[in-house]
């Protein structure tokens, strides 16, 4: 009896918090057929938002993958003073509010700061343009790649790497031939997590982008702007597109998640 009561409470809660609301936007979007959905997503503004989102996300993923692999190698393979501090610093971005991320970047790279003014003199604008949005996205997705590969690196051990080195392989060959194949699933997992987070980031990007329609508007900002301007159909269509990306990345991470039997 208690078993069924617990099951009912758990499933009921999930139904009303998660399943029905998410299902409802799919239903609202597709109830008029698939035509309006595509029409809304192929408007010039929507296409531009797609493009901006993709550029920002790809930059963020590339930067964080390079940083992530390097830092994971440092944290797991090397010994240096201050290792615990670096470990804590890598996790810090998870706990920071996206809005604070935006504010922080404006204070340092905005037009009224010394760094921002100096950069503006040589013609580089960070805030209210793409570089700032990339920085904000990098910030919020920073730990994902590191945390995905560090445990796998640790489990892998150094035996094979040592063997390769004693057999005359240089560090780059060792990394490409031995380490990289060992962590490839975890790396894929980290990259998918990072990409999903980057495509869906809203708060930090909202603050640093200045929300300029057709210029710095990403897909998430498009959703908010259309919704507040009573263009609900377009907001729902873009939301469904983002939700589909989320579902695909969720399934991909399930496939790639490191398991003991792999």
């Amino acid at each position: 009896m208690a078993k069924y009561a617990l099951r009912a409470v758990a499933l009921g809660y999930l139904m009303f918090l998660l399943v029905i609301p998410t299902g409802l936007i799919f239903w609202k979007t597709f109830s008029a057929g698939i035509g309006p959905f595509f029409e809304a997503l192929t408007s010039p503004s929507a296409l531009h938002a797609f493009q901006v989102t993709l550029i920002v996300a790809v930059w963020a993923v590339v930067l964080n993958t390079i940083f992530g692999v390097g830092t994971a190698l440092l944290l797991v393979r090397r010994q240096f003073p201050g290792k615990r501090v670096l470990n804590l610093l890598v996790d810090l971005p998870v706990a920071v509010s996206p809005v604070v991320v935006g504010l922080a970047l404006i204070l340092v790279y905005g037009a009224f700061s010394p760094a921002g003014a100096a950069l503006a003199k040589v013609g580089i604008q960070i805030i209210f343009s793409l570089p700032g949005m990339v920085l904000a996205t990098v910030f919020v997705s920073l730990p994902l790649v590191v945390r995905a590969i560090a445990p796998v690196l640790e489990e892998l051990g150094t035996d094979q790497e040592q063997a390769a080195l004693t057999l005359g392989a240089n560090p780059i060959q060792t990394f490409v031939r031995i380490t990289l194949p060992g962590i490839r699933w975890a790396l894929g997992y980290g990259i998918v997590l990072c990409l999903a987070r980057s495509l869906g980031e809203y708060g930090a990007v909202a603050v640093v982008s200045g929300r300029i329609v057709d210029q710095t508007q990403t897909l998430t900002l498009f959703v908010e702007e259309r919704f507040t301007n009573f263009e609900e159909g377009q907001a729902y269509a873009a939301s469904v597109a983002l939700a589909l990306i989320a579902v695909v990345s969720l399934l991909l991470t399930k496939l790639l998640r490191p398991k003991e039997d792999r």
């Binding site: 609301p21 998410t22 409802l24 936007i25 999903a196 495509l199 869906g200 980031e201 809203y202 708060g203 998430t220 900002l221 959703v223 908010e224 919704f227 907001a235 729902y236 939301s239 983002l242 939700a243 989320a246 579902v247 990345s249 969720l250």
Partner: peptide
């Protein structure tokens, strides 16, 4: 996985 703004809209 869901972007937060979409979560808000969904609710």
């Amino acid at each position: 996985a869901l972007p937060t703004i979409v979560a808000g809209l969904v609710l």
